[in-house]
C-alpha cells in the first residue's frame, strides 16, 4: 500500500497547550513541514520567544534557544554569524517583535542579517491575559484598553512589516492570513520562501502571519477567522510587501 501521509519529523509527539482556535499550532506545524521539505531539520536552530509560544521547543524537534522577551533577533544574529551554514529563525509575537524588541528587530533587519523571521500578529498579548499590543486595532477592546484603543492616547497600530520593508538590508517581507485553508497554504508558501532565501544567502526575510486569538478577542473560533478576513485585513492587508 502506498504511504500518503506520515508524521512531520520536525514535530514532537506532544499534546498542545494552546487554546482552541489559536493560530500558533498552525504556524508551528507549517514551519515544521517546511523544514522537513527543505531537509534542514538537523541544521536548524530556532530562537523561541517569550509569550504563549515560549515552549515552542516542546513541539519542535530540532535545536531551540529560548530568548528573553524582545531579544530574539540579537540572539539569532550571534548564532547565525557563528554558524553561517545553519538555518536560524526567530518566532516572535507582536509584543515581542514590535514593542519591547523594536530596537533589536530594526537593527538586525538593517544589518541585513541572513535570518528568517516568523512574526505572529494576533493584536494582543496572549500569555499575560489579553493586553494591548502595538498592533491592536483602533477601537479594539483589550484588558488595558477597556474602552477600546484610542489613537489619541495609545497611538495607531504599528505596521512594523511596512516599516522594515523600507530598510535596504531587508530582502523580503510578506503578510499572510492563517484564516482558511487557502490562507494557510499561502502562509506555508511564504514561510518556505523565507527559509529558501536564507538557504540562498539572500538576507533578512520576514513573514507576518495574522493569527487568531479567540480567547482574548472574546469570540468563538470560527468568528475569529472571519474577523481576520473582515476586520484585521483592513489595517493589515495581505500580500508581498517587499
Amino acid at each position: 500500500m502506498k504511504k500518503v501521509f506520515s508524521r512531520t519529523k520536525s514535530l514532537r509527539d506532544a499534546d498542545t497547550h494552546y487554546c482552541p482556535g489559536c493560530g500558533h499550532g498552525i504556524a508551528h506545524r507549517l514551519i515544521a513541514e517546511v523544514i522537513d521539505e527543505l531537509g534542514v531539520r538537523e541544521k536548524t536552530i530556532a530562537v523561541t520567544p517569550v509569550g504563549c509560544a515560549v515552549v515552542a521547543y516542546d513541539y519542535w524537534n530540532f535545536d531551540c534557544v529560548e530568548s528573553a522577551h524582545g531579544r530574539g533577533l540579537a540572539v539569532a544574529t550571534a548564532i547565525k554569524r557563528l554558524h553561517p551554514d545553519k538555518i536560524i529563525f526567530t518566532y516572535q509575537g507582536d509584543g515581542d517583535l514590535a514593542a519591547i524588541g523594536t530596537a533589536e528587530t530594526i537593527h538586525a533587519a538593517n544589518r541585513g542579517e541572513n535570518l528568517t523571521v516568523v512574526f505572529i500578529n494576533n493584536t494582543v498579548y496572549g500569555m499575560t491575559g489579553g493586553q494591548m499590543a502595538p498592533t491592536t486595532l483602533i477601537g479594539q477592546k483589550t484588558t488595558t484598553t477597556p474602552q477600546g484603543r484610542s489613537a489619541r492616547t495609545e497611538g495607531y497600530p504599528l505596521k512594523i512589516s511596512e516599516l522594515l520593508a523600507q530598510l535596504p538590508g531587508v530582502y523580503s517581507v510578506e503578510r499572510t492570513y492563517a484564516d482558511s485553508t487557502q490562507g494557510i497554504f499561502k502562509t506555508k508558501a511564504a514561510i518556505k520562501n523565507a527559509f529558501k532565501n536564507q538557504l540562498e544567502n539572500k538576507g533578512f526575510s520576514l513573514v507576518e502571519v495574522l493569527s487568531a486569538c479567540p480567547t482574548y478577542w472574546n469570540m468563538p473560533a470560527a468568528e475569529s477567522l472571519e474577523w481576520i478576513k473582515k476586520t484585521m485585513s483592513k489595517e493589515f492587508p495581505a500580500g508581498k510587501i517587499k
Binding site: 528573553a68 540579537a74 540572539v75 550571534a78
Partner: peptide, 10 residues
C-alpha cells in the same frame, strides 16, 4: 541590552 543577548546567543 542587545550586546548581552548576542553573547547569550553565541
Amino acid at each position: 541590552l542587545s550586546a548581552i543577548n548576542m553573547v547569550f546567543g553565541a
